[in-house]
Design a protein around this nucleic acid. Structure first.
Lengths: 142, 142
DNA sequence: TAACAATGTTAGCCTAGGCTAATATACAAC
DNA sequence: GTTGTATATTAGCCTAGGCTAACATTGTTA
């Protein structure tokens, strides 16, 4: 079973791949703010689950199914980040932190619903000039 | 420091108090789906933090500061439950489960922002007949 | 090619927070 | 008052997932 922690790790693999072209233990460690022995243990487990391949002292690579999993985790993360950052107009770092904290607690259905919800808000902004502005004003909290 | 787990416990104390008039270990255990020894350890810690008072084999009672903390946790929980249940129109049990999972990951500011956001949506529904209906239709996902 | 720097791995420890089994207490009923 | 049942507590174990320190490997550079 893919625990919350492992979801973070596999997402990190995908992102490190994008960022560096290849994935080393230290990249993952750096991204997640943990030490390499922790990464080592996690990657071992991901390999056992067939989500990455990895041989000793070598690079980490996503398998097909691992990539699919990672993408789905990533997509959800981005959706949440957008919700907090764009919809709620919170600062990027806070939006990111919050998205990161909650992403593992939304099931498929809830995530899909939120996506539709955000789409609806976008459509309202387009249809009704003033909607976005009203929203922005409603959110001010000082 | 009040860990996530302890926040669940202190919220449970408040709810058990509402439900039963007094708070026993077993009430908390039942509500959180854990065993009494786990509750015992948590309550001990809450007492150490000055959030509840409790003597051996007796009832658990919130202190003033504990009650304040519990209420704030509870309020956030309810706000989230409403977001998923009313705004996103998800089934109650799913909304509850999701709210429960993510509540500890929102800081004060984010929670306040979401509250304002929901207030804004309510005001739109009032001002523009059809808004709520359009939203409902936009969320359908079958 | 020898040595060093960077990286990865292993071993062993720690904490949080569950659990069960065994023990202790409180209270009700006889 | 003794006994039985419900509840609470303690002791001790387990897992996930961090960590450091020590060791191993790789690859680069003199």
């Amino acid at each position: 079973m893919l625990t919350e922690g492992l979801q973070d790790y596999i997402e990190a693999v995908l992102i490190c791949e994008k960022e560096h072209g290849c994935v080393r233990m230290k990249h993952i460690a750096c991204r997640l703010g943990v030490r390499t022995p922790s990464v080592n243990a996690a990657v071992k487990e991901l390999a056992r689950l067939g989500l990455v391949s990895h041989e000793s002292y070598g690079l980490v690579e996503l398998t097909a199914s691992g990539r699919q999993t990672a993408r789905s985790v990533y997509k959800r993360h981005q959706m949440l980040r957008r919700f907090f950052s764009e919809t709620l107009a919170l600062p990027d770092n806070l939006a990111e932190k919050t998205a990161c904290g909650i992403e593992h607690h939304l099931d498929e259905r809830t995530a899909a619903r939120m996506t539709r919800f955000m789409r609806f808000l976008d459509s309202q902004s387009e249809k009704h000039p003033g909607f976005a502005k009203e929203l922005r004003e409603a959110l001010i909290d000082e």
